[in-house]
Design a protein around this nucleic acid. Sequence first.
DNA 1: ATTTATTTGTGCGTATGTATC
DNA 2: AGATACATACGCACAAATAAA
Lengths: 94, 94
Amino acid sequence: MIEIDRESITPMYVQLASVLRERIRRGEIPVGRRIPSQHELELETGGAVSRRTIKSAIGALEAEGIVRGVQGKGVFVIAKPDAAAPSEGGMTAG
Amino acid sequence: MIEIDRESITPMYVQLASVLRERIRRGEIPVGRRIPSQHELELETGGAVSRRTIKSAIGALEAEGIVRGVQGKGVFVIAKPDAAAPSEGGMTAG
DNA sequence: ATTTATTTGTGCGTATGTATC
DNA sequence: AGATACATACGCACAAATAAA
């Protein structure tokens, strides 16, 4: 279950990106492996965020160069997040 | 007027990002200056693309680190695009 | 080759929130 | 208070690629 605080000042897509970034950083999802599908992530958040918002989170990770989406297959980890990468997972304000 | 080919294989947001990137690269919009508002760009394309899609294009440029959106003020140029930056302006296939 | 299911990609419309002037 | 402008979020639809049967 992915915890998303809808009341937080931190945007939901940023929260979700942080969770995924952390999973990758800790090696839970190794380089070369696929992350859960957008639909799966939607379920993992308990429906707290829509697929469009999940796409935004993935888009952020793509921009950071740590994942890459492949149409029809999935989103794959291509690199571990840099140590200097953003990780405001604890920035909840609720 | 910004030319957007809706039939092109190149996504509209990528086309628009390329046009803006080129304007910035050529110095038409200098560093520190504001780019046209999302609404202005919508009009510049003759309504070919919606504001939502324009936001996607700007998002791409933000990810490249060449512009930065400031809530309530506008989107500002913070750096010229790198020479190695993508510029598939001629990649129309329609 | 066709169908079906899965999965990501793109695009629009709308609403609400927040910040600036 | 009002106008302007960007930020976030949802829901929906369709396209395209992949994979399996």
